[in-house]
Design a binder for these strands. Structure first.
Lengths: 144, 144
DNA sequence: GGCGGACTTGAACCTCGCTCGAGGTCCGGG
DNA sequence: CCCGGACCTCGAGCGAGGTTCAAGTCCGCC
C-alpha cells in the first residue's frame, strides 16, 4: 500500500502538514490510511491542492472551494472543459474586484486636494465599495 | 456640557455604538465624559470616523488608520494638503492592488482551457499574488 | 419622583484559515 | 531491540474587526 506520506505531500505542494489535515477536515482532500493509521495520499491529491491554492489566490473562501470541487464530476479526472468552466467564473470574479477597486480609485482621484471628507456628498464616504485586502500587501505610508 | 451622545454619533455616522467604543479603545477617536460617565462627542468626530471608514475601504487595517491619524498634526483641523498627502498614498495602494489582480487575471487567461494546474510551470500555482477579498463580493459559481 | 430608554463596563463570542502544543504511536535503520 | 524522527488526535490560540450579553447606572420628560 504505497502512497505519499503527509510530509511528502507537504514538501511537494508547499502546504504545511497542519494545513493538509485541516483541509481534510474541511473535505477538500482525502487520504487512505495505513494499518498504523497514517495517511497515504494518491498523487492526484497534488493537483487538488494546487486547485485549492489557486482558488484561494483568486479570493474564494475554503467553503467556496469545496463547492467548486464538489461541482467537478466525481471519480474522473477533471477535463479541460471543467477547468474552463471554473476559470471563467474566477475571471468574472477578478473582473468584479478590479471594477470595484477602480471605482474606488477614481473617487479618490476626484477627492484629492478637496478635503471632501467634510462634505456629505463625498462618494468615498458612502458605501458599496469594499476592498479589505488581508493579504501580504504593500505597507501604507512608506516606512520613512 | 453639550456634545453628541454615542447614539447620535452612531446614527449620523452609520457606525454602531459597539464599534465606536471599539474605535475608542484603539485610540482612533476620543470623547469627553459627563458627570455621570457617559460619552459626549465633539462634532469633529464625525469627520474622523468618515476618515476611518474611507481608509478601511481602501484596505488599511485599523492599526494603519491609527498611524495615519497620528501623522496628522495634532490640534488643528486637517488641511487640504494633509488630505492630499494621505490620499496619494492610498492611491498608490489601490494601484498596487489593481496590478496584482490584473496579473492574476492574465495568468488565468493564459490558463483557460489548458488544464495547466497539472503543469509544474503554471503561474497560477506559484506565489507572489494574493487577493483574499473578505468583503461582500460576488458569489462564486452563479446561483443557478 | 418615577419611568423607560439610552448609556456604562467587561467579558465572551463570532468567522477565517490556519498554527501550535501535549501526549502518544509508528516506522525504518543500525 | 532501540532510537529518533515522522506521524497521530484533539483542543486551544491567534488576529482582525467587531457583536452580544449581563448587570447595573444615567438622563430627561411627565
Amino acid at each position: 500500500m504505497r502512497g505519499l506520506t503527509i510530509g511528502e505531500v507537504a514538501e511537494r505542494s508547499g502546504v504545511s502538514t497542519s494545513a493538509l489535515r485541516f483541509y481534510e477536515g474541511r473535505g477538500l482532500i482525502t487520504a487512505e490510511r495505513t494499518a498504523g493509521n497514517q495517511r497515504r495520499y494518491a498523487p492526484a491529491v497534488l493537483r487538488r491542492i494546487a486547485f485549492v491554492r489557486a482558488a484561494q489566490r483568486v479570493g474564494l473562501t475554503l467553503e467556496e472551494v469545496a463547492e467548486a470541487l464538489d461541482s467537478l464530476p466525481a471519480g474522473r479526472t477533471p477535463t479541460k472543459a471543467d477547468w474552463a468552466r471554473l476559470s471563467a467564473a474566477w475571471r468574472t470574479r477578478l473582473d468584479e474586484q478590479l471594477a470595484r477597486i477602480e471605482r474606488l480609485r477614481d473617487h479618490l482621484d476626484d477627492c484629492i486636494g478637496c478635503g471632501c471628507l467634510s462634505l456629505r456628498t463625498c462618494a468615498l464616504r458612502n458605501p458599496g465599495d469594499e476592498v479589505a485586502d488581508r493579504g501580504p500587501g504593500a505597507v501604507f505610508l512608506e516606512p520613512s
